[in-house]
Write a protein that binds this DNA or RNA. Sequence first.
RNA 1: GCUCGAGUGGCGGAAUUGGUAGACGCGCUGGAUUCAAAAUCCAGUUCUUUCGGGAGUGUGGGUUCGAUUCCCACCUCGAGUACCA
Length: 1031
Amino acid sequence: MPAYSKALTRNVFFQKNFKMSKYHFNEIEAKWQKYWAENQTFKAASPDPSKGGENLKPKYYVLDMFPYPSGAGLHVGHPLGYIASDVYARFKRHQGFNVLHPMGYDSFGLPAEQYAIQTGQHPAETTKVNIEGGVDNRGEEIQGYRKQLDKIGFSFDWSREVRTSNPEYYKWTQWIFIQLFESWYCKHANKAFHISELIDVFESEGNDNVEAICDDNVEVFTAQQWRDFSETKKQEILLKYRLTYLAETEVNWCPQLGTVLANDEIVNGVSERGGYPVVRKKMKQWSMRITAYAQRLLDGLDTIDWPQPLKDSQTNWIGRSKGATVKFRIQNSEFRIPVFTTRPDTIFGVSFMVLAPEHELVSQITTEEQKEAVEKYVEATAKRSERERMADVKTITGVFTGAYAEHPFSGEAIPIWIGDYVLAGYGTGAVMSVPCGDQRDYEFAKHFNLPIPNIFKGADISEEAYSDKENTIITNSDFLNDLNYAEATEKIIAALEEKGVGEGKINYRLRDAVFSRQRYWGEPFPIYYKDGMPHAIPTECLPLRLPEVEKYLPTEEGEPPLGRADVWAWDTEKSTVVSNDLIDNKTVFPLELNTMPGWAGSSWYFFRFMEAAKRDEVFASKEGLDYWQNVDLYIGGSEHATGHLLYSRFWVKFMHDRGLVPVEEPFKKLINQGMILGESAFVYKAIPTLLSPTKGIQDLSFLKTQIFASACFVKNEQFCETCNEQHKLAADFINNELEQLNLVDEVPYIIEFRFFPIHVDIELVNLSNHLNVEKFKKWRPEYNNAQFISEYGGIVKVIREVEKMSKSKYNVVNPDDICNQYGADTLRMYEMFLGPLEQAKPWSTAGISGVHGFLKKLWKLYHSGENENFYVSEEAASKEALKTLHKTIKKVAEDIENFSFNTSVSSFMIAVNELTAQKCNSRKVLEPFIILISPYAPHIAEELWAKLGHSYSISKAPFPKFEEKFLVESTKEYPISFNGKMRFTLELPLDFSKDEIESAVMAHEKTAHYLEGRTPKKVIIVPGKIVNIVG
RNA sequence: GCUCGAGUGGCGGAAUUGGUAGACGCGCUGGAUUCAAAAUCCAGUUCUUUCGGGAGUGUGGGUUCGAUUCCCACCUCGAGUACCA
C-alpha cells in the first residue's frame, strides 16, 4: 500500500473513532475522578458538638481491611473487596446515610525492613514511595498505592487517611500501650481497671482478697508488707498484674540472625531465610494478657454478624475446655505437680504421668540414675523446633525420670515420665495419663510397656483407647463405680475440692500474646528501665519517635536494631530523649530496644478514622466515637481470622472497660472476600537423556541447548506416541551440540526427553494460549537460543493452571492495565460479575469483553439521537419500560443488601437488553436507571447524569423507589408438568380459579398427547405458580 | 485426624420460602455488514436421539404431586487447624 493511502486510512479511522457520542471511558473517568477530589464529594460529615450531633443524617461506617503498601503494588485481586465495599458505601449514600468510608495503610512491617537491610534505604522512604509513587533506588518506577486506588474510582474520604508508621498516628498506639501497662484485670468485676486502684487495695489490705488475672507465682502480702516493700519490689509485683507485662517466654531464637522467628519463618528446624539453626529459648518479652478476655471474646461472637467459619476458627483458637486441675504429690519430695484434665472422672485409670520436657520440675525430680538420659532427651527436644515437633506426631519418644507421684485417692505410686507429646504451653505442661481412655496415652503406654488398667465397664481396649463420653460407665474406680460420665465428673470434682487436691477448672488454649519484636520498623515502646523495672514515659511526651540507626541489623551483641541508636535514653527530668552517654541510672535511663509487632497499629485504627480535626489532642473525639460507634460493614480476607480480628476485639474490649470507647465490638458485620486467582501459563521444557549400550543412561541437562515443545506434543511428561517427527527434530538439536562438543559415540544411541512445565510470564501469551516465541527468547538470557518444537504455523501452545496470583508465578494482572484498556467502570463491574464475593475464583482477562460491551450498550441507550448523539425524551415511558425499571430496582436493592453483587450486574445487562429492544428513551426510566448503576459504574453514571442536565453529583441523588404497581400482571405463563416434568407452557389469566385452570389445561391438545390415553390420577394446581398432572 | 465450606454445560456462574434447571456473560458455530479487518448486529449452543422422545445439578438411597433446594449414607475438591490432656 502506498504511503499516502496508509495515512488516509489512519485519518478516516481516527475520525470514525472520535465521534462525539462514543464512549470515551478514559476521558470520562479522569474527569470525574478530578471532580470528586476537587469537590471532596465523599467527605463524611462530622458531628458538631455545638449542635449536639443532631445536624447529621444516620451514620453508616464501611471499612476495608487496610493494606500493607508493598513495592509490588496492586494486582486485580486486591481491589475486589474494596470494590464491593465501595458499591455498598455508594448505595448507602443514595439511601440517605452519612457514610464513613475511609482508607489508610498498615505501613509498619517486615518487607520494608528487609528491603532497608538490603539497600540501606530508610524504610520510611521506601514506604512513602510505595504509597505515593516515585522511583526507588534501583531506578524502578513505582506507581504507588494511592494512584492505583484513585484510578479505580473509589469513594474514599481521603481527608481521614491514616498511616500506622506516622508519628502522629503511633503516638496514640503508644498511648494505648501505656493504658494497658497501667491497667489490671479484676476477675470479680470481670473488667479492667486502672492500676492505681489496685495499689489502693494493696495499701489498705494487701493482696489476699484481690481476684485478678495475673501471673501464677504472685506471693501473698499484707498492707503493711506492701508499704515496706522497696520501689523496685513494688514495681516487680505490679508487673505481674499489668495487662501488658514483661515475662520470660519460650521463643524460636535464631542466633545467626539475631532475632526471634515466628513459627512460619522456620522450615525443618532451620530459618527459612539463610537456613540457620533455630533453638527454643526463654527470652524476656512483652506480652499482652489477652487470656483475661478469653471468655468475653468467646461470648462476644454471639453478638456479631460474621461468617460462621471465621467465628469457628476464633472459637477453636480460644479453645475453651471444661475439666479440673488435680495436684499430684511427688513421693519423697515437697513438690506437687498440677495437671489439667477434661476427664477427671477417669482419675482411677491413671497409670503414669508425663511432663513436657521443658517443665520446670524436670531437673528437680529426676533421680541420679535417670539424670543422663533425661538431660540428653531434654537437650534433643530443645533443638527441634515447635513446628517440627508438631509435624512428627508418629514417633513416640519419652524418658522415665525415676520419680513417682502419689495417686490422690488410692495412694498408689505413679511413675513420672517426660515426653514431647506433652506441650509446655498448654494447661500446666503436665498430664495424668489414662491410657485406657486417651489414644495418645494409650500409644505411649504400649510403646514403653506401661500398664493399661481398664476403668470402663464393658469397653474393649485391646486395640485402642475408649474415648467415648456418652455411653461410659465407670468401674474399678472406688467411689465412682457404676456412674456415668456426668455423674462421675461432678462427684470427683467435689471430692478433689474437699480433699484440697484439685478443683473444677475451665482452661483456654489461648496464650498471652507475645508483643515484642527484635526489629527496627515498628512502634518503639514508650518504656524506660529503672533498676531493671519498666516505667512508662509520661503520655504528654508522646510520640516517642523511632531513633536513627546506621544499619537495620541486630547489634553484634545480639541486641535488636534499636541497640545501634546513640540517642536512645530517657531523661526523666527534662522529659526528653537524650544521648546514651548520659545514662546514669539516676535521672537518665536506657529505653526499651524492642519494637511492637505489626498488629499493634491495626488493632485500633478504625477509631482513628472517626477523628478528622483534633488528631493531635485525642486518638478520637468523644463526639466522633459516640456518633460513629463501630464499623457497620468490614470487608477483608479470611487470613486475619485469628490475628488482627482477635487482637482488635481484645483491644476494643479493654478500651471499653477503661471508658475510652462506647462499644465492645469493633466490627458489627464482616465479610470475607474470596481470593482472585491467576491463570498461570506453563511451557514444556525438554530435559534430554542419552541411552547408549556402552555408557548406559547419561544425563544431558548440562547442555546449553534449551528445547521447548508445544503442549499438544506432550503426554505424561513425554513425547506422545504419535510425535516421532517432533522427537527426531528435538534429538537433532541435541545431536548438533554433542557433535560440536565432540561427544558423539560411534555406537548407536538414543536420546530421550522428559518434559517439565515451567512458568512463563502471562504477558508472553495471548488469549488463545499461543506463546510469543520472540518475546520469550528475550525474556531470559538463557532462552536467547531456545529451540521450539512448534505446531503448524510456528505455534507453541502453553498450558494454563489456576494458582494464587503472585509475582513469582508470573501470572499477575495489573488493574492499571485493565483501567487503561477497558476503564475503571469495566474493571469494577467485571470484578463484581465474576462470582459471589466470598468465593475464590479465577481471573480471566478474556471474559472482560462482555462487561465492557455492556457499558457500551448502556452508553448507546442514552445516545439514540441523530448521529448517535445524546437523547432522552420527556414523554411518558411505556408500560414495558417501567416494568423493566422497577423489576431492576427491586432486584438490585435486594442484591446489594444480600451482598450478591454478581447477580445485580446480570440484571443490569438484562435491563439494558430489554430497554434497548423496547427503544426506550424516556427520561422517566433512564434517569432513575442510571442511579441504580452508579454504585457499580460511577464514572459513566456521573457523565450521563450530567448529560441529563444535573449540576450536582449523582452520588447525592436518592435511590429510586420501587413501586409494585408496575409489576402487576394479568396473565401467567403457566408451566404444565406431567409427573413433575415440565412439558409445555400455557398462558392463562391470573384471576382464574383452580377449576378454571384445570379445565383449560385438560382441554389443551398437548395434554392429551402427553397423557397418552391415561386418566390423570390427580391434578395439582398452585394458582400463580404451576400445574402438575399426575398419572 | 478434627472443624468449616463447596461440588450444576467447554468455562465463570444463575435459580431469594421445595414449583419452567442452565438466567447473564465468556467461548464456540452459522449469518449480516465490510475490499478486508476491527467494531457492531442477528440466530444457535446441557447431553443424547430412530426427531416421537429419553437422560440430566458429585454418587447411592429417602420424603414429596414435584427436590439443585429438605433428610440419611458415601465420594471428591478447597480452606483453616493440628499431639490442646
